[in-house]
Structures are given as structure tokens and as C-alpha cells.
Nucleic acid binder design. Structure first.
Lengths: 212, 212
DNA sequence: CTGTGTGAATCAATTCACAGCT
DNA sequence: AGCTGTGAATTGATTCACACAG
């Protein structure tokens, strides 16, 4: 069932960038914007912008350009950001705690509605004004909390088991900070953020650049 | 200068995964490993593994497979991980503080050797046993600290200016957590970690999956 | 004349298929 | 026979170039 991939994933990633740049441009008073200008703001090419947008429809006027605020709104709709998305954080260690307090999420319309951990020593504590609950409660909580996405910030050793809990709770999206490839059913979407791997790649390219 | 990358970036990203899986396999007593087995552990195809490795040489024996520990060692050499890499964190807010205490970095051979901020209220504080210094001191500190990579955890509004400081200090790699495309000279390598964009992409794919 | 939208061409990455070592 | 290493084929993404609308 998970084979519907007519939209290239890199396009979707760029749409987020476009939306952010458009919002900023619109806020600073720009009403019309060309693919040229938008591309310059985002660090891509104008034809890339137009091609990416063309997967979803045609939003500009030939010879004129795009309405900055209008296109921004369209992108928010395409990305599913018109309604506030509800997220829960699973794993309230060092990283999870920081993420719970990360202002960037709220600022972009992601509301942290729950914090979960399996360590009894952490359950019950208040973190950023939210009480940490036991992961056992995730499934029942989700019936009324309607969690869209879980941010998984548990250690590698606990990641697969925690992911299984999340899937069992009926949650469809996981942002995974553990350095493991999670095995989940096709209808669940996972994106990985592997900070250590990023450092290792950097390490490689830096060394590579030195070889000249 | 940043001319030919004959090595595909996706291959490098996978090499990190291979290294991690190999280390785990070797630790658990496996001495020989086939591309088939390694691929299964990493969630890729065997020919992908072999093609990725082939960019750097030939490390296996036909009809036999690879020596797990030996290949792991080769990968560490390729990725530039034989020597400990020294990192500094710039921006000691919520996120920077969490990253300073993130055990995963040390565990993978990245040593946090400095914390920097431009906010006088934060300078001088001890965070994870390291005293926060003013970003003005980065350039002189780097002459003896030999920082390989900076983790940039400042707000979007401060990111470009902070990056300029990092570049001026002679540091060649930046792991950027701010949702901005940094403008840096060609000889400096940047990798972006945009957690909000990741959530937005998830939001899209989750909505997409629901359309059935 | 300007700037979008899009098929066609190019470039990059993945997968296939098989030759060659053990 | 078993498994690697690698050109060839294929799939996918980006760039080009131009028709078309304002």
C-alpha cells in the first residue's frame, strides 16, 4: 500500500523551505514574488522552485510571479499545516527534555501535548509545565489526545520497543532521534535525525576537503 | 575549490550506518559478514553495500565475504574517525545545553572541547563541567584547541553572524541546527539539521498516507 | 517583454547481471 | 558453489529551453 510516491521526497523538503522564506518575505512587506526571488532566498534555482510547485498545481501568474502570502498559504495547506499538529515526546532524558522546551516547535504550529517515559523515576515530574506520564498510558491517552506525531528521543537500545508502543497506540508519524532503522508497518511514516551520523559525515567531508 | 565530489553524498551517509552495524556485529562475536547480512542489518540492498564500498577500494574476499572487524576499521579510517574529533558548541540555550550533555557524541569519539555564547548572562556558567566562553574568544581558543567541527545551536536570527565567526576562526565544519541556509566559503562544509522541517515533512507524508 | 509551467534532455543514483576469485 | 566487484541498464531528480499567458 505504501507505494504511492509520485511526489519526490526532495521536493517536499524544499517546500518547507519555501514556506518559511515566503512567510518571512510576506512579513517584511513583499506582496509579489518571482520564482527567481524565492529561489535566491532559499538557495535553490528558479526552475527548481517552479518544478516543485508544479507537482501540486499552478499558483503563479505568467509574466507576473506569485502572490507571496497566497502561495505561502497554499504551501501550508499542501504540507498539512493549516491545522495545528499535536505531538508527543517519548523519552524524557537529556534530549527529550530539551526538545520539550524547544520554542521552534510551538512557533511553527506544533503543540507538545504529552511527554512519556518508561523510567518510573521520571514519571510524574513536571517538564516545561507538562507532567511526564508512563509510556503504558500512551495508547489510552491518544484516544482523546489525537496525537499526530511522536518525537522519539529514547536510547538506541530502547528505540525499537518504544516505536512498537507508538505504532500500537495508532500514531502514524515518528521523528526518530535514535541511530537505528525502525521497523514499522507501511502506514507509519518515519523520519530519522541522526546527529552523530551527521557529525561523522561532516568529519568525512572536512577530511576530504583537506586532501588538495 | 569545492569542485569534484566523485563520491556520492548518499554513499557517505550509508557508510556511517555500515560502520555502526559492523561494530555491533563484531561486538556480538561475528567475525565474517557478507554484503547480504550487512545489508539486512542496515536496511539496504546488498548491491548497494558493495557499490558504496567500491568507491573506496575492495575490502572483501570473493566467495567469502568481509572481515567484520577489519571492514569496520577501514570504514572508520575512510570516515576520518580513527582520531578523536574535537567539537565546540556555539549557542548554549535550551538545545545547546542538551547537546553538550548528549552522551552519544562522546560515545562515538567526538569530544566536546568548548562551549560558546554571545550572551554575557550565560558566559562563565558551568554546563556539563565545561565553562561557557564568549564567542569572541573562539578564534584565539581555536589556535590551541584545534576544533574540527562546530555545532551551531543559536536562534535563526543569530545564525549567519555566528557562522561568520566560526569561519573566521578557521573552523572547517559546521553542524547547523538553525533553519537557515548558511552562506559560507567553499572550503567550509555545512550540514543542516532542521527538526521543524522534519516535522513538517512528516506532517505532509502522514496526510498523504491518509488519502486512500 | 516578463516570468510561469512543462516536456525534453541531462545528470546522478540505484539496481541489474554477470565475470572472476576462493 | 558462493560472494565480491563492477560495467551496463534503469530509474529518478535536476536542469534546460521554449511555448504560452498577462
Amino acid at each position: 500500500m505504501g507505494q504511492k510516491r509520485q511526489i519526490p521526497a526532495p521536493s517536499v523538503e524544499r517546500l518547507c523551505r519555501y514556506e518559511r522564506c515566503l512567510a518571512k518575505a510576506a512579513r517584511s512587506g513583499m506582496s509579489r514574488i518571482s520564482s527567481q526571488e524565492l529561489a535566491a532566498l532559499c538557495g535553490v534555482t528558479p526552475e527548481q522552485v517552479r518544478k516543485d510547485l508544479s507537482h501540486f498545481g499552478s499558483f503563479g501568474r505568467r509574466g507576473v510571479g506569485y502572490d507571496a502570502a497566497g502561495l505561502c498559504e497554499e504551501l501550508r495547506r499542501i504540507l498539512g499545516l493549516e491545522r495545528k499538529r499535536r505531538i508527543a515526546i517519548v523519552g524524557i532524558g537529556n534530549l527529550g527534555t530539551a526538545l520539550a522546551g524547544y520554542a521552534g516547535f510551538e512557533a511553527r504550529g506544533f503543540e507538545v501535548v504529552g511527554l512519556y517515559d518508561n523510567n518510573p523515576a521520571r514519571v510524574g515530574h513536571l517538564v516545561q509545565g507538562i507532567r511526564v506520564r508512563h509510556i503504558d498510558q500512551l495508547a489510552t491517552d491518544n484516544q482523546r489526545a489525537q496525537i499526530d506525531i511522536v518525537v522519539l528521543a529514547v536510547p538506541e537500545s530502547a528505540a525499537q520497543a518504544a516505536a512498537a508502543r507508538v505504532v500500537a497506540a495508532g500514531i502514524k508519524g515518528i521523528l526518530n532521534f535514535a541511530p537505528t532503522r525502525l521497523k514499522v508497518p507501511d502506514h507509519v511514516v518515519v523520519r530519522d535525525v541522526d546527529m552523530t551520523a551527521e557529525l561523522e559525515c561532516l568529519s568525512f567531508w572536512v577530511a576530504q576537503a583537506e586532501e588538495d
